[in-house]
Computed example of a mutant assay.
Amino acid sequence: MITVLLVDDHPVVRDGLRGMLNSETDLVVVGEAGSGLEAVTMARAHRPDVILMDLRMPGLDGVHATEAILRETRTSRVVVLTTYESDSDILRAVEAGAIGYLLKDATKAELASAIRAAFRGETMLAPSVAGRLVRQIRSPAGPALSAREVQVLGLVAKGRTNAEIGRALHISEATVKTHLLRAFSKLDVSDRTAAVTTAMARGLLE
């Protein structure tokens, strides 16, 4: 039997996944977690073969939970199951050690197949995710950030608000927002935290 830990902050999603997986004769759900911190604790207790991990959760997110779990539990495999497929989300999950990346519109057969593949140590990616990952590897840098965009992100990394950044750089708050939106587009992210994380990963910020 392949033991599985479900990690998602929505109980309804966990219920649906448990029902799908328990109908498979070679898969058994041994635990459920509603947060990243709980996932680390459950993984330590159950040592599951495969962990289905959501990305966006309050507190400790799926990426950091994956890193923490794999530091302790070398035999467990993590398969991300999420609604998000931006380049930054995919790269962060893969860099954290996830062996698979599926979207929540996956079928029951695809989900079961991915779990079995992960158990064998094989990578399983949703087709759209695989395409994004290949494009990102072929052109990892993406469009270059301007010097001003790097300056703005550097101040964001220090916790400055848009108004504070505007005063520091002697530009209007509206101009700060414009620089941020352009940086978001170039980095293929949708928020300040992801922009800073991605810029750091690409060596654009210290």
Score class of each variant (00 low, 15 high):
4 V>G: 03
5 L>T: 01
9 D>S: 11
11 P>N: 04
12 V>N: 00
14 R>A: 07
18 R>H: 10
19 G>D: 10
21 L>R: 13
24 E>C: 13
26 D>H: 07
26 D>Y: 09
31 G>M: 04
34 G>T: 08
40 V>G: 09
45 A>N: 13
49 D>Q: 02
52 L>I: 03
57 M>G: 13
62 G>N: 05
68 A>G: 12
71 R>D: 12
73 T>W: 00
78 V>L: 02
83 T>E: 02
93 A>H: 10
97 G>C: 12
97 G>P: 06
98 A>H: 07
99 I>N: 04
99 I>H: 02
101 Y>L: 01
101 Y>M: 08
105 D>S: 12
107 T>G: 14
108 K>C: 01
110 E>A: 09
110 E>F: 07
117 A>F: 02
119 F>K: 08
122 E>T: 11
129 V>L: 05
130 A>E: 13
130 A>Q: 14
136 Q>V: 10
138 R>K: 10
140 P>F: 09
141 A>S: 12
142 G>C: 06
143 P>R: 13
143 P>Q: 11
145 L>R: 08
146 S>L: 04
147 A>G: 05
148 R>P: 00
149 E>P: 08
150 V>G: 03
157 A>F: 06
161 T>Q: 09
164 E>T: 01
166 G>N: 14
166 G>L: 02
169 L>P: 08
169 L>D: 10
171 I>A: 10
173 E>L: 00
177 K>G: 13
182 R>D: 13
189 V>G: 09
190 S>K: 10
195 A>C: 06
195 A>Y: 05
198 T>G: 05
200 M>D: 00
205 L>A: 09
